[in-house]
Structure formats: structure tokens, C-alpha cells
Write a protein that binds this DNA or RNA. Structure first.
Lengths: 229, 229, 229, 229
DNA sequence: TATGAATGAGTTTTCATTCAT
DNA sequence: AATGAATGAAAACTCATTCAT
């Protein structure tokens, strides 16, 4: 079913070996991306051990063999997924124009962004969770991982410094601690939505609490950072 | 408390029947507990799919067969482990004597307890994380789970009510939201210690940050709850 | 069996506790019969390999241990069940008063009895089927089995002889062949009721076809035996 | 017919692709057939529960894994075996050229064929028996099973109708009943050969009684169907 | 006599990975 | 580059039977 139509349809006009509109029949980049997308879904849904190579391959436009061809092993594919997903959030964080805002507004913006990102990218949250189950041993092999993360630290350091200079923020808070605090609250309501929902009969990650939680988190961070008067 | 008392009893007080030297050959309760203990470690370390029944059995004082005899299946054992760890924390929460304290002190105590519990019982944190990977479908089958959790909600409701009555706490915070906030911060630094450590070169769950984090969390919660003056 | 001392106890002295109204608390015969009854049902329903010792024991009034105590093994129990069930039908056959009837009537009676017995005792039919799957190797170990069966042969021989003498029956039919013919038709509609039902949408062993089949079988046997005129 | 021609073809005619010396390394059809053949023997000899997947695999040209690859489970394989053997007999029945014969001759031919088929294909008889032990629940899942069986009914209906029209057969016999009668006698002597042999010291399925039984069955059926004069 | 607990050997099934075409 | 077939090692689970009390 899928297979028959698949081979023909997308290139419908494209015969086996020719190039049409710059799109090759065998597009390695496209194939890789396709595998990566499906793998992201599967690993995020099932975990590293729970995911099945067969299941991933089946949902792909290609075959199991290609998966090994491009990523070497199940673990190699998982690593690639992790890298991908981490690079996404760090890239977006970079795009925030915090320097143009006052420190309180900037912190508000940063927390809000973090909240929204977690709320929207549940695959990311789940994959981070999964990677922690495995002691982060896969992400540790990534070369770019550490460098990439230093950028956030810098962002927060600047933010705090400006607030302290303006007499608005306290000066005894470690930037990584602050980041941890923000992450905690944004992450937890997504990561533990299921047990929480089962325990209290209410999904903490659902749309009904989104606005309320966003405000609660922003406010608590600001209250915490505000200098005592 | 259970654990403490248990470890002592069998040796000291004369047990019901034929025990000599404290070790009965046929002791089903002991066998079950032994399996459960090991399984808690293994599931917590490896996840549900990652854990191996053989590995669990091997570390046990008994055989794989008994594991099936008492718990029916790998999943049955996992469920029993989950029930156990959840019941432990809920039982301890019940023992807090918050009613005797003023509301601020009580909240401080509650947050502190939650922090310490998560800091000390990492198996619990990991198992909850793992269960969320599985969409909480195992804990949902527990009959006692929901009832058990209602106790914490009650505790927090009382606590808030007393603070509001005393004019110290704001009155617009939902108790489950407050609980979520507290849990988030206590949970995250343990659950995500590995990726966090890999990202920033510092283990957020390590002893060097324990006191600092404890204070940060207690303080942020209190600041958040305090009535604006 | 193994433990000599044990074999003596149950009969001789009244067991440990009290006797009420001539009914002993522990009645070995009753226990054995109970086990045998349940085992008959289970083996008949599930086959020798399909039946579970645990399942049998559970439905019993006693425990698995007793099952081994009285019957030695699963196979021993199965053999006992087989013996039981075969002895039942042969005993009933003996009770037929065929000598008082004319040969045609007697044959009619014999076929009818065989039909009714199979129709009513489905456990018997299933157990015979099961035993054939196992090449009859269990029933072959029975000492009484062969002797018991010779009685039917005698019955049929007499019957034929009388019919031949009276000029009503043909004289070229082997008694065992005739018995086989009769058995075939009575047995098959029960033994293969399920595949037959699935194949043709009609249960050949059901009450709706009972009378019709009975007549068909009786008639076909008689027509077959009748001397050509 | 299938079998005969099949065994010959692959060697003689040039097969599609790279075959040399008739044995392709990768021949899924051959692999499946090989597994099915061995499984037919094992299930027929040991029953569904009694058969061992390992034992089947071992006698195969391939590995246990392939058995699961093609048939999914032990039960799936068993189902495939059942389908196969049923389709074989029904296919052969179709090939009988009964229309060209007179009704009596045709009935004689049909009974003879049924007799010979059962006498020769003991696997079929055993598998049907085994399936009945399981309440026919596996064959019931076959989609083609019911349709396939309707063909025999048609055959017999025609046969009876022609005999009735010719004034040779009685007109009060249900075709399925007649089929049951024929099957009973052909089936029973094979299916119950072992208990019968043990009981009467004579194997009813052996070569010494084959001709005699064949005649007896043919004759009894014809006598039964013949119109009274 | 009775019983729940215990066991070892075996049985089915799964899975990541590689091979032949 | 692509694919269905094939595989070995390991995993979960079952069962008849025996032991300790």
C-alpha cells in the first residue's frame, strides 16, 4: 500500500534515475531527515530501550538497512536525535533580544520563553528525561553539547548583572541555580504530567492550566530575584 | 519508619515459630521484600524495559521462578515497586506535625521535607520519571494510588488556609499548583542531574549545592506565598 | 508410594481430629474421587499436555501434594482417569439384556445404546480422542483394559450368530468390523463437532440432529447387516 | 496434484532469476514451505501443546527465528498448517469427475475417494482431531475455511439429486448428514487406531483390513441411500 | 494428612544487526 | 542506494515436581 504509492507518487513525473527540479530520486539528506524525524517520535514515545528499530524503520520512507547505513546503530541514531533536539532549543534561546529590555522585563521574557518552549516541545522534554535515565552517557559524547550550553549561562549572567547594577535584583544568586529553578518549573509539569494526572486527577500540562502556570512561574522567579527593600 | 523498626525486630524479639538465628528458611514475607528491594534498585537504575528479570533474580536470595510466583510478571513486579515507593513518601508526609507550627514555619518544614526526601530517595525520583515515560499506565492500575495522594492535597490546603487566616499568605493560590511548584524544584535537580551535569559541568544534585538549593527553594516558595504588603 | 509409613495411616486409625456422624474429616476415598472427577474434566477439556496440574489442584478440595500422593504424577493421574472412563462404558454394555430380544431388535438396541452413551458422555469421547493422539500408550499399560474389551466382542458375536441362524443377517461380517462401524458413526459426530460446526455452520452433536442421527445410524447398520433377499 | 508437479518443476524449467542447481540461497517460498511441512508433521505427531517450536525449527533448513518471521507465533504456524491440510483435501475433492458417472457409481467413487484420502493422509486426520480438542478455535479464524467447505456440500447435493431423479436414491437424506456418515467411517478407523488396536489386538487402519473396510463402507453407504423397492 | 513455598529445566518469543540480491 | 530475508544471542515466562513446616 504505502510502498507502492510511495515509490511512485512524490516524484510522479520523475523516472528512476533523472533529476527533476533539482530533486533527486534518492536524496540522502531527505532520507536522513525523514529517519531522524520518525526516530525522534519513537524514542521520545518509547525511550531508548523501549523503541524498536523495526518500528522506526517501518514508519520511515526507507528501510532498516538505510538506518544503519546512515547512523550505524540504534544508539547512533538516538545520539543524533538528542543532538538535534538540544541544538534546537539553544538556537532559539540565542535569538531572544534580551539586551534591548530592562532587566525585569528581560527576565520575564526569558522565563516566558522557557515556559512556552517546554510547553510546546514535549519531545524535547521526554528525550531529556530519557537521557537522564541513561545517565546522560549518550549526550556526553557529543562534541558540541557543552559549548552550546555555555551560551545560556552567559545570557543569564548578563541578565542578572544588569538587574543588580540597576538595583533591582539581589546579587547573591548563582546564574546556573537560577536557570535550574526556571527549568525545574517549566520542565516538571510536562515531564511528570502522567503520574501527576493520575495522582490528582488533573493534567498539569493541559491547556486549562497553561496561563495560570505561566504566570505563577514568572511571578515566583521575579519575586525570588527582586531585591529586598 | 517501617524500615527502621523492621530491621531490628526479627533479631531482638522472639519471632512466632521456629526461627533460630533470625533466618527462617521459608519466610514468604522476607522473600517478597527481598525481591521488591532488589527490583526497586534495578528498575530504578535501568528502567522498565531496560531492567532484566534475570539480573534482578540473580541479585536476589531466591530464584527467578519466585519472582513470577509472587508478582506474576515483570510488569507486575514493576507495579509492586511503584506502589511501594509511592506509599513510602506519602506515609512520611503524613507524619509531619505541621498543625503544631505557625503557617510560615509549617510551609518551610513541608518544603524542607520534600527537598530532603527527593534528595535522599533517588530511586523514587527515577521511578516516577520512568513511570512517566510509560504514560503512568502502570500506576494507574493501582487502587490505592489516588486515595493515597489525596492526603497531601489536604495537608497543603490546611496549610494555606491557616496562612490566609493569619493574614500571612495570599489567598489566590491553588493547593495543587503550589504542590507542583514545590515538587518541580525538588525533583528536577535530581531527575535531570546527568544532562545538567554534562551541560554545565556541575552536578546539581551533589552535596556541594544541597544546602544552597534547599534554601533557595524554601525561600522562593515562601516569597511566592507571602501576602503583598 | 515412596514413603512406606504413609500408605498405612489413612485406613487404619482415625485421622488426627474428630469423626462426625461416621464421616471422617479426612476421607481418602472421597479425596481420591474428588481429584479424579476434576482431573477427568480438565484432561478431557485440555488434553494431556494442555491440562495443568496447578489448574486441576486448584479446582480440587485438596492440594497439589495430595494429587502426587495418590497418583504419583500427572501421567499417573491421567491413566487413572482413562481407566475409570473406559470401565464405565464397558460395565453398562454388560447390563444390556440383549439375549431376550430377537436379533434385529437386539442390534437396534445395541446401536441405540452406543449412540446414547456417546451422545451423553462427551468426556469419554474426548479422552479416547486424546489418548489416540498419544498413540494409546497410557491405556496400554492398563492390565484390565484388554480383558474388559473382550466382553463387547462376545456380545456382538452372539448377536450376529443369532441373526445368521435366524436367516436375517448376512454371515460374512466380522464382529469387530461391525463394532467399528457402529462406533465410528456414534463417535465422530461428537468428537469432531467443532470443526464440523465451523465448516458447515451446524453442530452435528447438537440436540436438533440427535434423533435424526440416531435413526440414520440404526437404520444404516441394520440395512448393512440384513441378508439380501 | 499440486505436490507432484511442484516437486518436479523448479529443477526442470529455468526459474526466474539466479538459481543454479535448483537451490537458491534466498528462497522465501521454499523456506515457508519447508517450515510448513515440518510443522505439519510435528503438530500432527505431538499436538499443538505437545509440539515444540525448537523441535520444529531443528528439523527445518532454517532457524527458529524464521518461523516467527513468517508465521508470527507457534499458534500462527499451527493455523497455517491447518489451513493447508484442509485446502488440500477440498482441492482434491473438486477434481473428482463425478458428473460424468451415474449416481450410484458417483457415490461409490466419492466414498472410495474419501476412504483413500483418510487412509493415506493420516496427518490430516490427526490434525483435525487435534483441532477438535481445541474446540476448533484456530480454524475458525480462517477466512477461507467456510467458503472452501461449501464446495463438498454442493458436490453431495448434486449427487443425491441426480440419484433421486433417476429413482435410485431415497429423497429424505440431508446431504450434510450423508457426508457426516461417510466421514465418520473413513475417519474413525484412522483416528482411533491406537485405542482400538490396544482394545482388540488388531489395528483397524492397517493394510490387512483396508480393502475389507473400503468395501464395507462403500456398501453400507450405498445400501443406506438406495431407494426401497 | 495437609499446605504454601520453592525450584530447575525447559519453552516461547524478541531484538538489533547483517547478508544476498 | 535500496530491500526483503536471514540470524544468534538473549529475554520473558511456564511447568511438573519437591521441600519445609
Amino acid at each position: 500500500m504505502k510502498k507502492g504509492s510511495k515509490a511512485a507518487t512524490p516524484e510522479s513525473a520523475a523516472p528512476s534515475s533523472t533529476t527533476v527540479e533539482g530533486r533527486r530520486k534518492y536524496d540522502p539528506e531527505e532520507t536522513k531527515r525523514n529517519i531522524l524525524d520518525i526516530a525522534t517520535q519513537e524514542f521520545s514515545a518509547m525511550g531508548l530501550t523501549g523503541a524498536r528499530v523495526d518500528a522506526i524503520a517501518e514508519r520511515t520512507n526507507t528501510t532498516k538497512r538505510m538506518l544503519y547505513y546512515y547512523f550505524g546503530s540504534k544508539e547512533g541514531l538516538y545520539e543524533a536525535v538528542l543532538e538535534q533536539v538540544y541544538s534546537d532549543i539553544r538556537a532559539l534561546e540565542q535569538e531572544l533580544q534580551l539586551a534591548e529590555m530592562g532587566p525585569e522585563e528581560a527576565l520575564r521574557e526569558f522565563v516566558g520563553f522557557t515556559f512556552d518552549y517546554h510547553d510546546k516541545h514535549r519531545d524535547f522534554v521526554r528525550l531529556v528525561t530519557i537521557e537522564n535515565i541513561h545517565g546522560a552517557k549518550y549526550i556526553e559524547q557529543s562534541k558540541t553539547f557543552k559549548t552550546r550550553n555555555s551560551s545560556v549561562v552567559k545570557t543569564i549572567e548578563d541578565l542578572i548583572a544588569r538587574g543588580v547594577a540597576a538595583g533591582r535584583f539581589r546579587d547573591d544568586v548563582d546564574p546556573i541555580d537560577l536557570h535550574l529553578m526556571i527549568s525545574s518549573m517549566c520542565f516538571h509539569r510536562i515531564a511528570n504530567q502522567h503520574t501527576w494526572g493520575a495522582a490528582f486527577g488533573r493534567d498539569p500540562s493541559g491547556p486549562r492550566s497553561r496561563t495560570r502556570h505561566r504566570e505563577m512561574i514568572v511571578e515566583s522567579v521575579l519575586r525570588f530575584m527582586r531585591r529586598d527593600t
